[in-house]
Design a protein around this nucleic acid. Structure first.
Lengths: 246, 246
DNA sequence: CTAATAGTGTCTTTTAGACATTATACG
DNA sequence: CGTATAATGTCTAAAAGACACTATTAG
């Protein structure tokens, strides 16, 4: 088929970010308040246009940095910073009432940030518990996100929940050094379940390459001091750590 | 941020299809020969522009139907036809030398089609073994795909390989009614391994909702007649069927 | 008959889940 | 001291892997 510019309809391409973290035992997503119509005053996912000459991942990393100051790294690397990966693309013709916008959503897993989020071009940014944005078995959401962002967020949360089963990505929610108990509380918050601390300890310390002891100990949680670990090089967990059925 | 049309650079949005099937014990992908520059005469993945007013999945289903005559159905349903899901989006600025094109790749898992593929606007369509398109441990590819389609294909193959571990999607490669042995040969072809027929039989027949006996038997492969099954309603396999390590 | 595939069963090893016990901090 | 968390160990049940054996077809 010919690539005559008159052949194709004009599209705007944006990146939207599902930025997840665990704060106070709850899975939270980064939201920004919209300053413009439509959906003025409503909460939305951070995002923006892809620029000319910019690839999709760079646009997502740039938006992330603008909104949070986090530096992202891709699927393979294990440096400090947040994990970033492409999530899915949303392009229903009427998802934006003004024009045809195709949004390439990205998923970011970030450690709990010390400073509350700020900056960027958004009116205000806030961590909100996922349950208040999406609702759960006991009720609907407290606040409806703008556009189709509730669906994007739901897809991102499901991706995160399923991906920590088969990979060591849960460590992306932790600071560079963390304890087994802190990692377990990540799993519990993301899955919304309770895990047996002893079986969890055996599982993660027995999986080669998942955790690397770093030598020190800490007593952040009170009680007996815990060993500190950092994330190992392994990215695939085999056998996986499966979610409890119920 | 304002959505002034002058603010965003113009993009073309296409869908590309990774259509996989298993033919003669080999995982194969659908390719079309390019009739235009660039990459004239090279093999490429089927695809085309997303039309105004058309959502991404519809565009992919339309392209699939035009290229193969297959009717697609989404992730949930289990009707006759092929499985279609979004794979990933590729938008590097220089992936197409003529203009900025963002391609939303989709993955299709199809049963072995009786008729060789034809039709559509492509010069010719052909099933090609994935190993000849991507190469393997023993060597590089026999033919280089156009654009970044080798990477897209590789991502689609990896998605298929990993998804049949945790879901009953392998049945999408089979006709409506199939035997346990046929399903096993699907796994063997997709993963490129040999599986123990007895353990495989125990695993798949012992997973509730995976296979539903349909009553008849067949002797397609020679030997003792095998029971016929159809895909059950279960989409998630728990525990999963993990790939052998080596 | 042999060859090929289907289907069932048995044994061993690994892993998950439930839970006891000890260790080391804090107040 | 009691309480909280960490870390290790023990027992059992479930599942995976290796493999013997029988069943039913084609030729």
């Amino acid at each position: 088929m010919p690539y005559d510019p008159s052949d194709f309809p004009p599209f705007a391409v944006t990146v939207d970010l599902v930025v997840l973290t665990v704060r106070r035992h709850a899975l939270c997503a980064l939201t920004v308040r919209r300053g413009e119509e439509p959906y003025r005053g409503r909460w939305a996912l951070p995002g923006g246009f892809v620029r000319t000459g910019e690839c999709l991942d760079s646009a997502a990393a740039r938006e992330l940095s603008e909104e949070t100051g986090l530096r992202a790294h891709g699927e393979g690397s294990r440096l400090a910073g947040a994990h970033l990966e492409q999530l899915a693309t949303y392009g229903d013709p009427d998802r934006d009432p003004r024009m045809r916008v195709v949004s390439v959503a990205h998923l970011v897993l970030a450690p709990d940030l010390p400073a509350p989020v700020a900056g960027g071009d958004a009116g205000g940014a806030e961590w909100k518990p996922v349950r208040s944005l999406l609702g759960d078995a006991s009720g609907g959401p407290d606040e409806e996100l703008a556009f189709d962002h509730a669906r994007i967020l739901a897809d991102g949360v499901e991706r995160a929940r399923s991906k920590i089963e088969y990979s060591s990505l849960a460590a992306a929610f932790c600071p560079a050094e963390f304890t087994v108990g802190e990692l377990r509380r990540i799993y519990e918050a993301v899955w919304g379940v309770s895990l047996d601390p002893r079986n969890f300890h055996r599982k993660v310390t027995g999986t080669p390459g998942f955790l690397v002891p770093v030598g020190g100990t800490t007593t952040r949680q009170g009680g007996r001091p815990a060993q500190l670990f950092r994330a190992g090089g392994a990215t695939i967990l085999n056998p996986p750590m499966l979610r409890p059925e119920v």
